[in-house]
Design a protein around this nucleic acid. Sequence first.
DNA 1: CGGTTGTTTGAACTGATTCAATCTGTGTGG
DNA 2: CCACACAGATTGAATCAGTTCAAACAACCG
Lengths: 206, 206
Amino acid sequence: MLKQQVDCGGLVIDDPARKQQAPSRIPFRAAGSPDEEAIHVLEGLIALYGVDIAGKRQIVALRFPGETVWPGGRGRFGIWPLVASQLVVTHANDVLGCYADELSPRNQSIAFEWLAQSRAGALERTAHLLCEIAVRGGYGTDKIPNMLTQVQVGDITGQTSVNVNRIFAELEARVLIGRTRGEIIFRDWEGLRRLASFDPAYLEAA
Amino acid sequence: MLKQQVDCGGLVIDDPARKQQAPSRIPFRAAGSPDEEAIHVLEGLIALYGVDIAGKRQIVALRFPGETVWPGGRGRFGIWPLVASQLVVTHANDVLGCYADELSPRNQSIAFEWLAQSRAGALERTAHLLCEIAVRGGYGTDKIPNMLTQVQVGDITGQTSVNVNRIFAELEARVLIGRTRGEIIFRDWEGLRRLASFDPAYLEAA
DNA sequence: CGGTTGTTTGAACTGATTCAATCTGTGTGG
DNA sequence: CCACACAGATTGAATCAGTTCAAACAACCG
């Protein structure tokens, strides 16, 4: 998970002068802004989102700590911290070397996985998100912090928050997860993984 | 559209010895095979697809003539010629140079666009596909060849063929398209474009 | 305490699926 | 030239997943 940081040269990314705080849920960069920058996530969780005519936002990608938002969408996608985050912004050229070799195939792989999942049922998609957070966030298979609102989960998985709530209740009723205030507990990781067709292979670089 | 071919060195891609015919609808590479190769499309239309537990296939990307299928999914996605196609297969290393600069950002941009579109209604998604075929296939805004079955359109847009049929009928009833045996005619390109929120900017390289 | 944000629940509605049947064009063999 | 098979397109009816609207409930915070 931390490989990118090492590859790209710690001296750039660890420069404290470039570090920025990004408050939760305040757009860090709105859709439509030019993007020449690479944004490295140190802490928190960042979403790339598109907006349709009706004003509905659809999240198209997540970036966990250690991952990087590369330019390439011509600014069509906004950047939205789902939780309070720490970022380092560099000009893309400074770290381009590691883009081709490692990062881009992995990001494409994740995008394809999301597309392949996109027609599954809401139960499967929601379970898949929980699995992905567990692995990509490095939390392991016991539990993850409950850091997203149900509205945010809906933006990611393409449902209304009303339905997210029912899906969570259903996952709990099936004893796949448990919920406390601050955490989601995996009561049956293997069952959840199977329900979601989640195979972490797509998260390894090509 | 042909830029990639030029960039990557015509001598490799134009080598007639490497040219292969790929018959329509016979998997060229099944999901799960290793992928070390770059597959260049000379003619036809290629789909990358994933398969879920239920055996349903979901197409995650298309490759038109002049475009290339890069490795990076660890073989999780199969390659399926939607129509009879001409391909050139090379080892990825031989043409890696052009990957980072041009091709990958564009492919990521397209994947994001598909994800952003994925929650729109069936009418909008189908209209979007027609627009994308027109531009990416280089057919212009008058008409496109009717080369896909309604089952294939459903695989791409995530619907059943029954619904695809109804959507086509609806698009025709709204005088956005016309249908003949071999072609789909754009009767109101601007209206179709607006309905689909189709902005060809995402098809330009970053 | 009131204000705000997030969660939970109910009921009506709708887009899309599923199942099933019919229709149309195309090619094939007698 | 006709009989037949086959793939694709079209249509109808029942069903279902998810949305929408509306309201109640819970937790948190100044």
